[in-house]
Design a protein around this nucleic acid. Structure first.
Lengths: 117, 117
DNA sequence: CATCTATATTGACAACCATCGAAATTTCGC
DNA sequence: GCGAAATTTCGATGGTTGTCAATATAGATG
């Protein structure tokens, strides 16, 4: 299996699917949702839902808990935290990037730019 | 082509790749980066970098601006905002989801659960 | 114009992924 | 233990995607 992936990439990949994002959104709104209810929101068969839930589980997004015959899923708070952290890490830090490209090398100064690579 | 996709999914899909996440991270740190410099950080050929930059551009993540021979890329603040907004929308809202599955139907009350679907 | 450098596009190929039907597994109630 | 219902696993399949070499385009410079 392919394990050696950046966990942040795994988190994003897991969320980057229409069906799975719908699932995450529904969980965000309703808190705890029975697995059987996801076949309604997403136009997808039940084995497919099961597959997506597995992906979300393995990425750390959700946790499933049995309640009799049904399994209720909830969002994993840690995943949400990691997600926001990721958003924070992308925030333009030292350099200014808003709007105009201020702080860029001018045309002539760029001319002496050392060869990349 | 496949256009009719949820823009949020597109945003996530664009970020959910090791190479592209590296690019986004580097942009977050350095502010403005020459396209030619991305071949260094990610172990990938130039056409591949160009391809990924196109994906990020079309998803709204980055903007490119010519400066002589080179093209400098910067993060698009709007994309960052949408990304954080998305993280906020996933926040457990009304229902409580922390830790224990409180608020779930008990076993017997779940028994009369209307058939899902 | 000729040429050089950076970037984009094209075409091909392999790997991956979402989806489904069918079958196996788990759990409950009788 | 048996049957019913929810869920998972399996195998197959069509579509998407990341990667590259080769080629094309664009801007700068002589």
């Amino acid at each position: 299996m392919k394990r050696p992936v950046d966990p942040d990439v795994r988190l994003l990949q897991a969320a980057a699917d229409p069906t799975r994002l719908s699932i995450l959104r529904q969980l965000g709104v309703e808190g705890a949702v029975c697995a059987c209810d996801f076949t309604a929101c997403c136009e997808v068969r039940q084995p497919t839902v099961s597959h997506h839930l597995k992906v979300l589980r393995e990425a750390g997004w959700v946790r499933g808990e049995r309640r009799g015959t049904w399994i209720y899923y909830t969002l994993e708070p840690a995943a949400l935290a990691r997600f926001r952290e990721l958003a924070g890490a992308l925030r333009p830090g030292s350099a200014r990037t808003s709007g105009e490209l201020s702080g860029l090398p001018t045309l002539q100064s760029a001319a002496h730019r050392p060869i990349a690579r």
